[in-house]
Structure formats: C-alpha cells, structure tokens
C-alpha cells in the first residue's frame, strides 16, 4: 500500500524543537534583560518582514524593492489611529492590517501593469509617493515626524517592563503567525498554484490557474501583514518620521539580503538569514559602511555562486526539509 506523506522524521523532530523554542521565547520577558528583549523583538520583526518578502519574490515572482511603503504605512497608520482617532494601541493593530490591505489593492492594480524588473522600480516609486505624502501631513509632524504620547503608550500597560514585554509578545506573536501562515499557504491548493506559476507561468495558465488573481491575493495579503509588522516596529521605537518609516535601506535592503543569504524560495531561508544577519550585525556593526559593503558583496557572491542561499547549501541534493512541504510517495517498505 502506498501513502502520500509530507512529514519526515527530520521534519517531525524540527517541528518539536521549533515548538520548544517558541515556548522558550515566549518566556523571554522572565529570563532576558531589557537590551536582549529589545534585540529579540527586533529579530522577530525582521524575521516576519523577510518571510513576507520571500513569499512575494521567491514564490509569487513579485520582486518588490518597495516594501518599505507598507512598513511606513503601518507605522503611520498606527500613529494616526492612536493619536488622531483615539484608538487604544491594541485596537489600532487590526485597523492597520485592514488599512494595508485596502491601500495595497489599488496599488497592485496599477503597478501590476509593469513587468518583471520594471515592476520592482514601480514599487519603489509607490514607496516614495507614500513618504513624500506623509511628510505633508502636519497632524503627524510633517517632515520631522512625531513621538507617541506617553498617555497612549501607558494604555498598553502601566509599568515600563510590562509595556516592553507586551510589545515583545506582539512581535513574537506576529512572527509565529506570519511564518505559520506562509507555511500553511504553501501547503494549501493556493500554494501549489503559486509554485506552479513560479516554475512555469505558461503551463500554470493552461492548467486554469488565474495568475493575475493569485499574484494579486499574495500581494495584498503580504502588504496587510507588512503593515502590521510596521505598526509593531514603530510601537517598539515610539517615534516615527518619514525618512525612518520609508527607509529603503532598513526595510528593503536588509530584508532582501537576509532572504538571499538564507535561501530564497524556501521557508527555512528567511529564518537562517535572519539569524546570520543579526549575528553579523552584533559583531560587525561598528564597522558602519564597511559592514554594509561586505553585506552587499556577500549577497552578490551568493546570488552568483549559490543562488539557493545557505539553506540551499545545507539542504544539498538530499532535499532536507525542516518545514515539510514536498509530498513524498511512501511505499510499503517505508
């Protein structure tokens, strides 16, 4: 008798370890210092951004260099919802998510008219339009930006430690949710369609897959989640300005390097890339511009020599998977 199975002993073990790590991380506010907690929170937010960009570029073939548009939109949306519309921080988060989806839909309709690499630059134009527009909004501080008033911050929790713990749990929660959602999406029928499009657009079309709609759905969902991550980033920072919110370096360049180094088009890649990125940053960040030059060079070399990234090298020809996505046909002997 034959069965089709996805999990392997390795992936089952990996899932168990992952679960343990998530539990351990959820307890971090009780064992980690303030600086470590901040760093871990940042790691989870970058992991979310990287996973989302990987879904966009590595699976849907939508290579965006303008995801900072939605990070900034989420950040500004969060500040507007709390400061101008009087919502509590927790109530503002779902609003930001919806805002990201609502704004990204017409954006997608417009820039999907651009093909391939020109699509990439189009996303950048959109991010610039957002940045320049928010710089004109006087109620949010115009070009110089604004800080989140402490009265709003206090709504999150009374003491500073509790506040930081809540912000941390939100970051961890969104990372788990994003990685989980992407994993489940890729396992679903939609995910199969997406992989089919990536591998052969023409063949996918002949199988009756609506390519435009599939890509549109991915773009909007990614934008909504990226906006949510943006809100959490600026909840952690407590201060926003157009240049910080729509920074191409912080929210796109680093994210692309993370995914390329880790391994584009795999679920594991962004996770590994994020770990490598932070390990490098914590040891080499004092080098400043040299660090960035080195990062760019490493990304180029990886793209030329090992386009599947570090995870591709580890995975090799054996097709190891921590996140079980491939279907395997098991014979009786297995």
């Amino acid at each position: 008798m034959q069965t089709v199975s996805r999990s392997t002993p390795l992936s089952r073990a990996a899932m168990t370890v992952l679960l343990l790590i998530v539990v351990l991380m959820a307890a971090a506010p009780y064992w980690a210092g303030r600086a470590e907690l901040r760093l871990l929170g940042e790691v989870f937010l970058y992991l979310s951004l990287a996973t989302l960009w990987n879904l966009l570029a590595g699976y849907a073939g939508l290579v965006s260099v303008g995801q900072q548009a939605f990070v900034g939109l989420g950040g500004y949306g969060f500040f507007a919802a709390t400061m101008l519309w009087g919502l509590s921080p927790l109530a503002a988060l779902p609003i930001v998510f919806v805002l990201g989806a609502v704004i990204s839909a017409p954006v997608a309709v417009l820039i999907f008219r651009l093909r391939g690499a020109y699509f990439a630059i189009g996303t950048w134009v959109v991010a610039e339009v957002f940045r320049l527009s928010f710089a004109q909004v006087a109620a949010l501080g115009g070009g110089s930006g604004s800080s989140l008033p402490s009265a709003i911050v206090k709504q999150l929790a009374e003491g500073r430690d509790q506040r930081e713990a809540v912000a941390y749990w939100l970051a961890l929660g969104v990372a788990v949710a994003v990685v989980g959602a992407v994993f489940l999406l890729l396992r679903s029928r939609q995910g199969v369609a997406l992989t089919a499009i990536r591998d052969n657009e023409l063949a996918a079309k002949s199988l009756g897959i609506d390519i435009w709609r599939t890509k549109f759905t991915v773009y909007v969902a990614t934008a909504a989640l990226t906006s949510l991550v943006g809100a959490l980033i600026f909840l952690q920072k407590l201060r926003i300005s157009p240049d910080a919110a729509f920074s191409a370096n912080d929210w796109t360049a680093f994210v692309i390097f993370i995914v390329v180094i880790g391994g584009i088009g795999t679920v594991e890649g962004p996770i590994i890339g994020t770990l490598v990125f932070f390990a490098l940053r914590e040891t080499l960040a004092d080098l400043g511009t040299t660090y960035l030059i080195a990062l760019g060079a490493v990304a180029i070399i990886i793209m030329l020599r090992a386009p599947k990234g570090l995870w591709g090298l580890v995975r090799g020809k054996r097709g190891l998977e921590l996140f079980p996505l491939s279907r395997r046909v098991m014979g009786q002997g297995d």
């Binding site: 690499a117 370096n249 360049a253 390097f257 511009t289 030059i293 760019g296 180029i300 793209m303 030329l304």
Partner: peptide, 22 residues
Amino acid sequence: DILPPLLVTFGLSVIIQNALLT
C-alpha cells in the same frame, strides 16, 4: 530568471552608495 540580475544590481547599489560614503 529576473531575480539574479535584479538582486545583484541591488547589492551593487548598496556597495556603491556605502563606498562613496566611506
């Protein structure tokens, strides 16, 4: 594949910018 040229020139952009800064 459009990814390699895009990502390589993107890396190049970051390198040139930071080299000029230095």
